[in-house]
Design a protein around this nucleic acid. Structure first.
Length: 202
DNA sequence: TGCCAGGCCCTCTTTAGGGCCTT
């Protein structure tokens, strides 16, 4: 499948829970959640805990609700990520603050010697451009701002991925409903002062 | 010993600094 084809057809919305902020400091992924969208419809989901091979901090246990006991019964991060690499092949990718998730995806897949062929788009960057009046642009705030239904679970990977997918669909609708993935990616990169003008020309 | 991310984006900017956002 070419990139042009997957841009039109399939987007994987993903979210990692991790042991910290930086793989460069030894942090690892401990949970991956993802929602696969085809033409705005959910066609598949991926949700796995994964054991990084060391104990996670009390802060991360509290922040995510994922305990060391839960991870002790999980498969190794490498095992899960190998399956996830197959899940995302041929798809473009979306995350809230994609710089964070792409950093961990790159690091975990590099350990396996494999990669992916899609491109990332970031709902945080788009949200800053099209919802300048929101109190802030955290995922939870934008979900509330757009009155998106949710079950009250935050900081778990599948729940956050599902909310990001719903936010993405709301963003598409608010941009006129006919922008392609590539156009949304372009929108995320243009200067904020030119967003209204850019959308008006569409 | 002490510290430990990094990209985006705004502004009292651009020869910089600091808040936001992700865990």
């Amino acid at each position: 499948m070419s990139l042009a084809q997957c841009a039109a057809d399939t987007i994987v919305v993903l979210d990692f829970e991790t042991t910290g902020l930086s793989p460069n400091n030894g942090d690892r992924a401990i949970e991956i959640g993802a929602v696969k969208l085809v033409d705005g419809q959910v066609v598949d989901r991926f949700s796995e805990l994964m054991d990084p091979g060391f104990r996670i901090s009390a802060f991360i246990e509290s922040y995510t609700g994922i305990s060391n006991q839960m991870l002790a019964g999980a498969e190794a991060t490498e095992t899960v990520m190998r399956r996830f690499a197959s899940f995302i092949q041929g798809c473009n990718l979306l995350a809230h603050n994609a710089a964070f998730d792409s950093k961990f995806l790159d690091a975990e897949l590099a350990r396996l010697g494999c990669g992916y062929d899609g491109q990332f788009v970031c709902s945080l960057l788009i949200g800053r451009r099209i919802y300048p009046d929101a109190a802030n642009h955290r995922l939870g705030t934008l979900v509330e701002y757009k009155n998106i239904r949710h079950d009250g679970v935050f900081h778990r990977a599948l729940a956050d991925a599902q909310m990001t997918a719903d936010l993405w669909l709301a963003m598409l609708a608010d941009c006129g409903g006919n922008l392609t993935f590539a156009e949304m990616q372009r929108l995320s990169q243009i200067p904020k002062a030119k967003v209204a003008q850019w959308l008006a020309r569409r």
